[in-house]
Design a protein around this nucleic acid. Sequence first.
DNA 1: TCCATTTGGATAGAAATCTAAGTAATATTG
DNA 2: CAATATTACTTAGATTTCTATCCAAATGGA
Lengths: 160, 160
Amino acid sequence: MKATRKKKSNGSARGIEFPPHDSAGYLVRDAHRAFQHLLEKRIAPYGVTRGQWYFLRVLWTQDGLSQRELSERVGMMEPTTVIALQSMEKAGLVRRSRSADDKRRAQVWLTPKAKRLKQRLLPVARHITMQAREGVTRAEFELFRDVIARMTTNLDRLKR
Amino acid sequence: MKATRKKKSNGSARGIEFPPHDSAGYLVRDAHRAFQHLLEKRIAPYGVTRGQWYFLRVLWTQDGLSQRELSERVGMMEPTTVIALQSMEKAGLVRRSRSADDKRRAQVWLTPKAKRLKQRLLPVARHITMQAREGVTRAEFELFRDVIARMTTNLDRLKR
DNA sequence: TCCATTTGGATAGAAATCTAAGTAATATTG
DNA sequence: CAATATTACTTAGATTTCTATCCAAATGGA
């Protein structure tokens, strides 16, 4: 059944196939989605969204950064940062103040509530990583880390 | 400079740090974004968006699928599929017809234009993969593939 | 046959992103 | 010092994705 055109429609030149399974991009995409969904599910009970998560991670390490610095460290464009911070301010996770020296500059400060969340949420992240790595040896993981980082570097170099 | 509180604010319990660099999730996220951005940039000249890309990939392999089947194969929820297909229909990449047997069922067909794009676009994808893998040996890549697939499986198992 | 369930799609609304184009404050330079 | 450029953030608008509902067609029992 369904033998209608097969050779023909699948690309006229040889080698025109490219199964997703062979594609690093697909592997990475699937893994990314799996991480995202699980993270989302596990932090939602604390009232934190995935978009807020990355900013919390950075601010837990260093508080009082400007929006620009935050954007860079989180790896997002500034409009994204604006939106995330608005939602975080509304959720009582940060407050923003203008710098006295430079009135353009907005400094972002964690609230006590957000600081307390660190103790709850970092273990969640660590747990997800551990669960992901189940059955993966340290050596395997280290090679994985090395390879994926090299691929990312390769691609980033092409973006500019 | 900036020596204000350091020990204290970095988490009161020991082991409460978790640098992104040690996190599989961050590695995967960075790689994913690198792939996405480059793909987007390279297919944009053909008038194809990243959201349409995945559907094209599947339809190039098998045409005439229903929306449900497409959603499953692409790995997206159905509302996402609806939106993507609307944009693809508007862009002249697919047309949809109701199945005669089952009037609920919408079948999705590639236009000749979309079929022709295969020859242009698959090489783009293959090229990105090749560029990503530069300096990565086959053995390294195969271990990478194995590890990331195992991690994805581990995480997916936890989602239900 | 008729009603309840299941199935295939669509809509609504939210979130997380981006690019492009503002606005306001600061810095530079002729 | 005034005109210009740069910097920090914001707004606008588009895309991609989700969850939660809803509608309409088909199916299966009672």
